[in-house]
């Protein structure tokens, strides 16, 4: 780890200004991923701008019945928030399925969205990685990729996004508020994370010196139910092999609204638009769910050792929808 300067920002505007003034600066939230990566030499900022004490630590109702989540709200606080538990259970469950109690107490909402991949080659600076060092190559395609992407990957990168929380946010149509040198803008969570394409170095569409200030959840109509399911290598404290966040509203046996997002499959939380299209207006039932999910996963291009993820994702999604149907 190289020496770095440290600044505790007094305001969002100051944080952004200082970042713009100092190339190589990074915002520090909980630090659970950034400090980890600094120790690995993957990140080596010259300046850390500590934004963890900015007054962005509130969860408040929006006027239209949605929820506004400050970027520095800790994962455990967000998971425990009564409004999240009652109105957006998929989000609470996703948070609680991730990491450990200690990490959730420290990690922030904004930082969780900005987590970087757990690809073993990305984490090892002695090896090539197009994400870490553009143009150096991707050994994972032929190497260790059992835990990596099956859909939406490119020849340049097969990394997966590790967050559970982001998967739920994607299914819940959350919006990210960003503040940067050019002011404020909003990006849907589903558009926030990128596919690798020919430039895997950027995980997200965040611009230089922009910071996440809030995440906003839109209201869900009466009768909407949601949940999060995750499969992993041990019973707790492990990243997802695959996961699904499902949101469903059924009226008189017909699917009025369905949103599905997969974790562990792709470079970003994979919002299953094709499946949703097939589900909308269709009669609720296992056969419909299976064909809709299969339509989505037809686009999967598993690698040598991770085809099981496609099966796993299919089962998780179909079962999640079936479980929600009994509640809807």
């Amino acid at each position: 780890m190289k020496p770095f300067a440290y600044l505790r920002a007094a305001s969002v505007a100051e944080a952004v200004r200082e970042s713009a003034a100092r190339p190589g600066a990074r915002f520090l939230g909980g630090g659970t991923n950034l400090v980890d990566l600094m120790k690995l030499g993957v990140e080596s900022p010259g300046l850390l701008i500590d934004v963890s004490r900015l007054p962005l630590d509130r969860v408040t109702d929006t006027a239209d019945g949605g929820l506004r989540i400050g970027a520095t709200v800790r994962n455990s606080d967000l998971a425990a928030h009564p409004a999240v538990r009652t109105r957006y259970p998929a989000l609470s469950q996703a948070l609680l399925a991730g990491a450990s109690g200690q990490l959730r107490n420290t990690a922030t909402t904004g930082g969780n969205l900005l987590q970087r991949t757990r690809c073993p080659y990305f984490q090892d600076t002695s090896k090539p990685c197009n994400k870490r060092e553009p143009g150096s190559g991707c050994p994972a395609r032929e190497g260790a990729h059992r835990d990596l992407a099956v859909i939406g990957h490119s020849t340049e990168c097969v990394a997966t996004h590790p967050s559970d929380m982001a998967v739920a946010l994607a299914a819940l149509d959350a919006v990210v508020l960003l503040y940067g040198p050019d002011g404020e803008r909003t990006v849907a969570v589903t558009e926030f994370h990128r596919l690798p394409g020919d430039d895997p170095s950027a995980d997200t569409v965040i611009r230089p010196d922009e910071m996440i200030t809030e995440v906003v959840l839109p209201p869900l109509p009466e009768g909407t139910v949601s949940l999060y399911r995750k499969a992993r290598d041990r019973a707790s404290f492990a990243f997802a092999l695959a996961s699904v966040a499902a949101v469903l509203r059924v009226r008189e046996g017909r699917i009025e609204h369905a949103a599905l997002a997969f974790g562990g499959l792709a470079h970003r939380p994979w919002r299953a638009r094709t499946a949703e299209e097939a589900l909308r207006g269709a009669p609720a039932g296992d056969a419909v769910y299976l064909s809709a999910v299969d339509a989505e996963l037809a686009a999967a291009r598993p690698l040598r050792d991770n085809a099981f993820k496609v099966t796993l994702a299919r089962h998780l999604a179909v079962d999640a929808l079936a479980a929600l149907t009994t509640r809807a």
């Binding site: 757990r118 073993p120 090896k127 050994p139 032929e142 190497g143 260790a144 290598d233 041990r234 019973a235 707790s236 404290f237 492990a238 990243f239």
Partner: peptide
């Protein structure tokens, strides 16, 4: 095979049983 080392070199990827197991 390419790099000659253990892929699972940390406690996040080498899964010793956790309490819940």
């Amino acid at each position: 095979p390419v790099f000659g080392d253990f892929t699972e070199s940390d406690l996040a990827s080498y899964h010793v049983p956790a309490c819940a197991d």
